[in-house]
Design a binder for these strands. Structure first.
Lengths: 343, 343
DNA sequence: TTGTAAGCGTTATCAG
DNA sequence: CTGATAACGCTTACAA
C-alpha cells in the first residue's frame, strides 16, 4: 500500500547488474545480453513487478509515443466516429492516442494544446474550434507534427484530412428542387471560424442562386444553436413566417442541427414532406455501423448524403504516422469523399 | 523550424539569474522575488516563448495533474455523455482529463492502463470492459487513485459512480404487462464481465417471474451483438418463432441494443405496438440535451427510463478529486439514479 | 531575496 | 557482452 515505486536501479541491484544492462533488457536489446544475465534481469523484474517510467524515458529520449487528439466537441456523433478511426490508425502505427475535448471553446483548446505539448506528445491531431489559430501554426513551424481534421486553419498549410462538401450539397439541393420544393433555406450555426460550415454555406448560396433561382440567397440563411432548443425554434418559426405558402426545402449544416430543426418543426406541428422537406449531411458514423438509417426513422422525406468520419480519422492518423516518419515531407491534403445522395 | 527547445536554463542565463529563480517565477512564488528580477524573468520568458516541460516537472514532483479516463467503447451514446461529464468535473478541480478508448477489448484496456500509469497520471477513471480485473485492484492497492464508472469489478471495493438498474427495470416491465403484452423477453449482449448488464438480466428474470409469471425465465433471454445486424436479426427471428401468437414486450439492455432490435424488427416487417412492444434504458445523454426524444421518433410504443451519464461522469470526477485530496479516505459508492419511466 | 547542488528514472556515450 | 557516468529539464533543501 503506497510503497515506493520500484525503479531501474532497484532492479539493477536485485539482479546484480548495472542499470545499463537492465535498460538494454527493457528495450529488447537481447543481442547485447548473455543468456544468464537476461534471465537474472527477467526474474528480478517479475519479482518486483517493475514497470519502467515512461516519464523518465520521455524526458531522456524526447519521444513519448503519445499522440494528442483534440476534438472540437466530443458530444457530436461526428466526433465519436472520428476518434474511433483516429484511435484505430494510431494504434496500428504503434502510437497511443490521447483524446481531449475542447467543448467548442477556443480557450480550452489552447490550454489543451499547451498541456499536451508540454507533456511531450509526438504529434497533435486537431479538429479545431477556430480557423484562426496562430498557436498551431507556431507549433507546426517549430517542427511538431500537426494534422488537421475536417476543419481548415487560415494562412498556413497543414496536413489535413477533409471531406469535400460542395458537390454533395449541390446534388442534394438539386434533388430537393426536383421534388418540387419552391424555396431553399439553410440552418446553420455561426459560420465564422469553421471551414466546413463555411464551405456548406457557400455551396448553399451557390445552389440557392443557380438551382432555386434565388435573388437574395443570404435571406435564406437562418442561424441557430442546435444545443439550444429555443434558439432553433425561433429560427424555424422565422423561416416559416418568411416562407408564406411556398413549400420549403431545408438544408441543415450537420446532423445535430438537422435533428434540432426536426425537433422544432415537429414541435410546431409542421408535418414533414409536403410543406417542408429536410436534408443535410449525415455524419453519424456509428448509426451506420449499427445498420440504422436514422433519417428514414425521422420520415422518408428526410434525405442526406453520408460522410465517413471513421475513414477520415483513419486518414488523419496515417498522415500523422507519415509526418512523424518524415518530418520534412511535403504537406498533404487527404480527401475523404461523401457518398452522394440516393435520389 | 526544428530549433532546439528552450529550457529553464536558457531563461536563467538570458535573465541573468539562477534556475531556481526562474522556477520560482513559473510556480508563481512572487513573494520570493523582487520586483526587478520578476520583470527580467518575465521578459526573458516572453522573448524566448518559453514553456516549461511538464515531463521534467512530473518526473521530479511525481505529479502530473493528468487524470486518465478509459472508456469501454467510445462509440456508444452513453460514453459520449459520460466523458463530457467527467471532463467537466475534472477541469473544475484543475485536472486535465486524458481520454482513451478500450474499444471493448480487455487487452487494449490493460495496455492503456499500463501506459497511462507509466506516464504518471495522478489517477484513473475507468468504465471497465471486465469485471475481473486484477491489474486495477493491484493499482488501487498500491495507492493510485482509481474510480470506477457504471461497471463494477469483483473482489475489491473501489470508489464508484453507478446507476441502480433493478427498480426502473421492474417498473418498465410492470408497465409493459399493464399494456397487455403476454410474454416478456430480454435482448442482451453477453452478460459475463459486465455488471450493469448482469444487474439488468437479474432484474429481468425477477420481473419475468413475478410480473409475467414465467416458469422458465431463462428461455426468454436472447443473446445478440447489436453491432452485428445479422446476429440481431437471428435473435429477433428466433424470438418471434418462439412466441407463437403471444404478444411480446421486449426489453433491450441498452440504447444501442434497442436500436439494433428496432432495426431487426422493422427489417422483418414487424409493426411495433400491437404484436411487439419495445423498451429499455435510455442512456443517450446528448439526444436529451438536444431536446430530441428519439424513442418517440421510433414510435410511441417504445418506452424507456432515462439514465444520466453526464451526471454519472460528474460524480466520478468528484470522487476522483476527493480521493486525490485524501488518498486514505473511505471508499464511496455514488448512486446516480435513473428517471423512472413515465407510464 | 537569491543561489548551489542534488536528484527524479531513464538512456546514451564511452570505455573496457 | 558489461558497466561508469553524464545528461534530459525541472524542483527543492539548504545556504548565503
Amino acid at each position: 500500500m503506497g510503497r515506493k515505486n520500484v525503479t531501474i536501479s532497484d532492479i539493477a541491484v536485485a539482479a546484480g547488474v548495472s542499470k545499463t544492462t537492465v535498460s538494454r533488457y527493457i528495450n529488447g536489446r537481447f543481442d547485447l545480453l548473455s543468456e544468464p544475465t537476461r534471465l537474472r534481469v527477467e526474474k528480478a523484474i517479475q519479482l518486483a513487478h517493475y514497470t519502467p517510467s515512461a516519464v523518465a524515458r520521455s524526458l531522456k529520449t524526447q519521444r513519448s509515443y503519445l499522440v494528442g487528439v483534440i476534438v472540437a466537441n466530443i458530444t457530436t456523433p461526428f466526433a465519436t466516429s472520428l476518434l474511433n478511426g483516429i484511435g484505430q490508425g494510431l494504434r496500428e502505427g504503434g502510437y497511443i492516442p490521447i483524446f481531449a475535448d475542447a467543448g467548442d471553446s477556443p480557450d480550452d483548446e489552447r490550454r489543451l494544446i499547451d498541456s499536451l505539448v508540454s507533456h511531450q506528445v509526438d504529434g497533435l491531431i486537431v479538429n479545431t474550434t477556430t480557423s484562426h489559430n496562430p498557436q498551431l501554426i507556431d507549433l507546426a513551424n517549430s517542427g511538431t507534427p500537426v494534422v488537421l481534421c475536417d476543419r481548415y486553419i487560415d494562412d498556413y498549410n497543414f496536413d489535413i484530412a477533409v471531406c469535400p462538401y460542395r458537390e454533395p450539397t449541390l446534388e442534394l439541393m438539386a434533388s430537393m428542387r426536383g421534388r418540387g420544393f419552391e424555396r431553399a433555406v439553410l440552418f446553420t450555426q455561426d459560420v465564422a471560424n469553421n471551414s466546413p460550415r463555411a464551405e456548406r454555406l457557400d455551396a448553399f448560396i451557390e445552389g440557392d442562386r443557380d438551382v432555386f433561382g434565388a435573388h437574395d440567397p443570404d435571406a435564406d440563411v437562418y442561424l441557430c444553436d442546435p444545443w439550444d432548443p429555443d434558439s432553433t425554434r425561433a429560427a424555424v418559426s422565422a423561416m416559416l413566417a418568411d416562407s408564406g405558402d411556398r413549400t420549403v426545402g431545408a438544408y441543415a449544416t450537420n446532423t445535430v442541427t438537422l435533428l434540432a430543426v426536426y425537433n422544432a418543426l415537429t414541435g410546431l406541428g409542421v408535418a414533414l414532406g409536403e410543406q417542408v422537406g429536410l436534408c443535410g449531411p449525415d455524419d453519424w458514423g456509428w448509426a451506420h455501423r449499427l445498420g440504422w438509417n436514422w433519417a428514414d426513422t425521422l420520415g422518408s422525406s428526410v434525405t442526406t448524403f453520408e460522410t465517413d468520419p471513421y475513414a477520415m480519422g483513419l486518414e488523419a492518423a496515417r498522415l500523422m504516422l507519415e509526418r512523424i516518419a518524415d518530418p520534412a515531407g511535403k504537406k498533404q491534403v487527404r480527401l475523404v469523399p461523401a457518398v452522394m445522395p440516393q435520389v
